[in-house]
Write a protein that binds this DNA or RNA. Structure first.
Lengths: 165, 165
DNA sequence: GTTATTGCAAATGATTTGCACAAGG
DNA sequence: CCTTGTGCAAATCATTTGCAATAAC
């Protein structure tokens, strides 16, 4: 876990007159112990494994806190559950590419995209605050070779292959 | 309403072995009679005004149909309700700018952005299918003048000024 | 001691669904 | 007719919330 996280959260907590608790510490450790995207429910399961005295409500409430403190970000992957992305601390303006064949999500940064979007925003008479780019795309691998390692991998792990509906 | 809509839907319906019904016709007319974004519930209210024998369930089911037929698109404006955008027929690759001060949503097209995103996608080894760019920004007007006509307008109309939460 | 935090279970709210009846082709 | 579509009400399911007990500071 990035050393700065705990510190930044402490700042936030102090500034808002809130309190540091054991539950919050555990949840934060779990959130930032890895860099996969996750849902509230997935996090709840993960957290439960280390200590069972953390309730679902506290998980939801702490997630809200982390988002408010800008340590964690909600992203839209087209699911009906909110997905959380813990990687904005390291890569403050990364984007997401979602493969419509295998459901895999890639993160990428691109300074040119950022610049272009900023300039468009200014041209419209606004000051840019945040931008969210999601690219849905299909595997060249799958199209050219008739198979895609990610597709196979996700079948093995039982992950969902496509959006619902 | 764009003349092509009904036709395109008829095609879709025929291809899938479905049926054209009075309710679907009414809903489609309502959806494409204007170009504002809307939620399922808002559409339900609108549709109810012209004919009261359309149920909420049918509205939801027809929305699903229109999305599947690619006549209508779901967009994410950060609300807890799905928002629908009827303007992708006219502007197939437009983007959204959401003002965090007044909540107003602007649509804009930009060929450069499209090209750049496509090229990034290819560089990552994928074939681009669809891209979604949402820019959150703040009013220059508000910052410079201390007021923003949109902000005032949205106060008058009682629209929400900021995201929830 | 105060006040924020937690766990629990109940409440919420958007969306979906089962089923009997109605209607399109 | 035969099958799809509809309305209704009940069911789902993620998320939120009221409240009494608990723990920060």
């Amino acid at each position: 876990m990035d050393a700065g996280v705990q510190e930044r959260l402490d700042d936030f907590i102090r500034r808002k007159g809130l309190r540091r608790t054991g539950q919050r510490d555990m949840i934060i450790k779990s959130v930032f112990s890895q860099d996969d995207h996750f849902t509230a429910e997935e996090l709840f399961d993960r957290v439960r494994k280390s200590s069972s005295d953390i309730s679902r409500a506290t998980v939801y409430r702490t997630l809200g806190l982390l988002v408010e403190a800008d340590l964690l970000r909600e992203i839209d992957l087209g699911e009906n559950q909110t997905t959380y992305d813990p990687n904005f601390l390291d890569k403050p303006s990364h984007n997401h590419l979602v493969c419509i064949d295998c459901g895999r999500v890639l993160e990428f940064e691109d300074a040119q995209i950022d610049l272009l979007n900023d300039s468009v925003t200014r041209r419209l008479g606004f000051r840019p605050v945040r931008q969210t780019l999601k690219i849905e795309a299909s595997c060249e691998q799958l199209r050219l070779n008739g198979r895609c390692t990610n597709l196979i991998a996700s079948r093995l792990t039982g992950k969902r292959l496509r959006k619902k509906r």
